[in-house]
């Protein structure tokens, strides 16, 4: 029968170890730190086709992660998808005429929104909209186009 002190000590160690494990999981294993958008602002963009884009997908500018997709809704009047982009407050100098494209990470990976900076001197603010957008590339259509091009080029010969 171990005495009280020793038992309380080991229980303390146990609970601390458990909490350490949980923090490790939160900060070193998961995307928790990367996910936090500090003091973010929201901007919308309209797409004809969002493809496989999901909420919480990353938004990049020059390849650097600057925020995440916070909402995707369907506009039934214009038959478009309205994507809300939540951009981290550290990046406030994005030109208003920047373009947003839905790109795929790698060949078959997750889809994300890639921004390309424009030339406007005015910057995006809360509630603004991106005008220039490029919808997701649908693989089937690409292949269909490729086949059609091959057919027409061989036909021209």
């Amino acid at each position: 029968m171990l005495n009280n002190r020793l038992i309380e000590f080991w229980v303390g160690v146990f609970v601390i170890a458990g909490l350490v494990a949980l923090t490790t999981l939160a900060f070193r294993v998961s995307n928790l730190t990367a996910m936090e958008t500090v003091d973010g602002y929201k901007v919308t963009a309209r797409f004809n086709n969002v493809g496989q884009l999901k909420v919480k997908a990353p938004i990049t500018l020059a390849g650097v992660r600057i925020g995440r997709v916070s909402e995707i809704v369907f506009d039934s009047d214009k038959y478009q998808a309205v994507v809300t982009l939540e951009i981290d407050g550290r990046f406030r100098k994005i030109p208003r005429d920047s373009s947003a494209s839905i790109l795929t990470a790698g060949l078959l990976g997750e889809q994300y929104v890639g921004l390309e900076a424009g030339a406007d001197e005015e910057f995006l603010r809360q509630g603004d909209s991106l005008m220039l957008t490029q919808s997701a590339l649908v693989l089937e259509k690409l292949i269909g186009q490729l086949v059609a091009n091959l057919a027409s080029s061989s036909g021209k010969k």
């Binding site: 999981l25 939160a26 070193r28 294993v29 998961s30 995307n31 990367a34 996910m35 919480k56």
Partner: peptide
């Protein structure tokens, strides 16, 4: 090993659900 993990393991969907 770590970067792929940190990128794709979602705190809410994976860690919290596991908890």
């Amino acid at each position: 090993y770590w970067s792929q993990m940190q990128d794709r393991v979602d705190f809410y969907d994976d860690v919290v659900n596991g908890l």
